[in-house]
Amino acid sequence: MPLLEVNDLTTWFHMRDGIVRAVDGVSFTLDRGETLGIVGESGSGKSVSCYSLLDLIPKPPGRIERGTAVLGGEVDLLRAPREVLRRIRGKRIAMVFQDPMTSLNPYLRISTQMIEPLLIHEGLGNREALRRAIESLEEVGIHDAVRQIDLYPHQFSGGMRQRVMIAMALITHPEILIADEPTTALDVTVQAQILELIKARQRELGTAVIYVTHDLGVIAGVCDRVNVMYAGTIMESGTVDEIFYNSAHPYTQALQQSIPSLHDKGKSLYTIPGAPPDLTEERSGCPFAPRCAYEEAHCTGPNYRGLDAFRGRHKTACLRVLEGELNLKEENR
């Protein structure tokens, strides 16, 4: 039984100018201890789908229209009463946000913020909680934690704050860690440290991690499985090797080819023509069709069935690949 099973998650934002279909029928599973990457460009719904799980989207205008997200086969996160959800957030599912500069409260000492989840979720006393907090700071590589813990967030650099955030998220030993672009705001050399750190802590604690990122390089380095998102839906889902070496969706492939990768030498970059679709318009068929090099009439027709099994757990939403009309490996030769 998977640790988390998300089914047909649909989150819409009801704006003045129409309905933004930010997440539109997303289904995926997460196993214990595995690392799942959710990759996509801005507006693909990758963050919103994770925020929806923890009831963190602003309502209104946001609304979870339908779907289920069952944690450990017992609780549906999307329907759980607030009380239950509160006990899950920060205890069984923790989150690390993109911007370490704004995700810590500038007016409170690190210690106050770190022991809070322990006081709330584990009912520890102040003393014991503080001991655990210092311990977990040491575990994320902060030297002299006994002294550092009494500082305020602004006394830390960006990379250090992200370490604090990770220590804080992992202090209750959650089953799932959702990391929303955890290194996007950081420098490359610091990013390397943070990625290594999350990997190491995950190994020690057996936490399952969901990485939300736009960076295929990060995905390649840390993930077991990957969901590729586009326009609020999952385009392809598979292991990293399947996604990178055996891609079964033209979008995934186009995305990889358009990276100014470190190997190609000076030739023109592959570009995806056009721009992502307007999410306020109702979608019919494949959302990528207008930009797709392999698009044919039936891609936008009634036969389009969305994400479906391609080979075992490798799934794709490309109708032409599913129907066996298109072999991307052949095409690329």
């Binding site: 650099s157 960006g158 990379g159 250090m160 420098d187 490359v188 050399t189 610091v190 990013q191 390397a192 440290q193 990625l195 290594e196 960076d215 295929l216 390089g217 990060v218 995905i219 390649a220 380095g221 990293v240 090797d241 990178f244 070496y245 990889q256 990276i259 990768s261 470190l262």
Partner: peptide, 24 residues
């Protein structure tokens, strides 16, 4: 700097040795 860049290539990422700097 070069070693810190994540390559969009899982096999390479698994095998290559990274020079991770300390601090900011």
């Amino acid at each position: 700097l070069v070693s810190a860049i994540p390559f969009p290539d899982p096999r390479l990422e698994r095998t290559r040795r990274r020079m991770v700097l300390e601090g900011d």
